[in-house]
Design a protein around this nucleic acid. Structure first.
Lengths: 221, 221
DNA sequence: ACACAACTAGACCACCCTGGTCGACTCCAA
DNA sequence: TTGGAGTCGACCAGGGTGGTCTAGTTGTGT
């Protein structure tokens, strides 16, 4: 308990830094952990990228692991508040729902790309680090994301001559496929500086085809 | 030239080993490079996993990089002969073609999973290692794979009321999506020991829907 | 003006792991 | 008996590790 409080005090030192400095350190650390994973990430590279002395990092976090935990916590909160919380889980139409998911994710990603790269890492790393409280938080977020994708979708809109579960997956894979390909096409560019309008246009073209192909046709003149 | 010959002689030592030993060393090295990339791969871990003394590895390859180059060359040949060469590039039907690609890739992957994991690594690593001759070979294989996927496909079979290029992509993403999801579902199991029959059944179910949805309906009773 | 605490940088530590070498040893053919 | 191919792992110098500590600066209250 006593130790726990001390940790809080020490991290408070970091949190009472001016935002821009916090941001620089956080981004440097996120980038390093995202690129190399926990074990192989180097605190030396982090301080160099952040432009601070080695002493400061350990003044703010005392141990590498504490820094890592802080980043996990930060990322979870960021993804929750800047992405998941914004989704309208009431939307019953799969394509609308997935489009929303894609758009919100893209916006959040544009705001802080490193958080998402880092989260991809700690979501996969079979977390030997991390207190079980944090591990539970991670699991919760996974579940929340899963629900947002699968829950409350109205399958009755799909064409009647096919297994709706399969149609569901095909639509999801199609949209994921576009998103993935777009992201690959855009590697190297700063997400925040891209004008996405033409891509959304292109995307809607795909959606129209998906609707035409997988949904029950409404008017059968 | 003289150096080049010496390299050949030294690698010949490795190649005249009994196959099972060659295989064990190769697999250990493939796995290590696949897991960590060139720089962070450890020769110590390789020799331990291969069950040989450190001396032997350098007796066979003299330098880490030589080992790496050998593995790249080996992988390229493997993928070419066990996968790409088997594809019937004459098949004009996209779904048939992609199904073929998927099946052949799965078979090759079942035969040597590590080669594919390793190839994923060296296809991405902006190869600072590697003589330009090998880099060219890699580029050629990329091109060949690309052609096998895009060339000679008959777009006239797709439904007429949609951009065939988009339909093309949607079908590809769908099939890739299934393959990826299946691979994820099967992580941890040895590919070679799995009975794929039920999965192919499931897969054909998806294909039927794709055909129904994206192809021109033949009989309009 | 002074004291004292918060803050900061980076030299430094002991340790570990790296790619690669080398001498000692075994085995087998001549 | 000799010599060379094959084999091993202790060993090397070097570099990188997470973390500490000292020396110095800055800021603030009195």
């Amino acid at each position: 308990m006593c130790v726990k409080e001390e940790v809080d005090i020490i991290i408070a030192r970091f949190e009472s830094l001016e935002e821009s400095k916090q941001h620089k350190i956080r981004q440097a650390a996120l980038e390093e952990f995202a690129a190399h994973g926990y074990e192989k990430a180097s605190t030396n590279r982090i301080v160099k990228a952040a432009g601070i002395g080695k002493g400061m990092l350990f003044y703010y976090f005392t141990r590498k692991q504490e820094l890592y935990e802080y980043l996990v916590k930060y990322s979870l909160e960021f993804i929750q508040s800047q992405y998941l919380d914004k989704v309208d889980a009431g939307e019953p139409d799969l394509i609308e729902r997935l489009t929303q998911l894609a758009r919100l994710k893209m916006e959040a990603q544009a705001e802080n790309e490193e958080v998402f790269k880092f989260s991809a890492v700690f979501l996969q790393e079979g977390e030997p680090h991390l207190p079980k409280e944090l591990a539970a938080d991670i699991e919760n977020m996974k579940q929340a994301g899963y629900k947002l994708m699968y829950e409350g979708i109205d399958r009755s809109r799909f064409r009647k001559d096919a297994d709706p579960e399969k149609v569901f997956h095909l639509i999801r894979w199609s949209i994921d496929g576009y998103q993935q390909e777009l992201l690959a096409r855009l590697t190297g560019q700063k997400l925040a500086e891209i004008d996405f309008a033409p891509y959304w246009q292109e995307f809607y073209g795909y959606l129209a085809i998906l609707k035409k192909s997988f949904y029950e046709t409404e008017e059968e003149s």
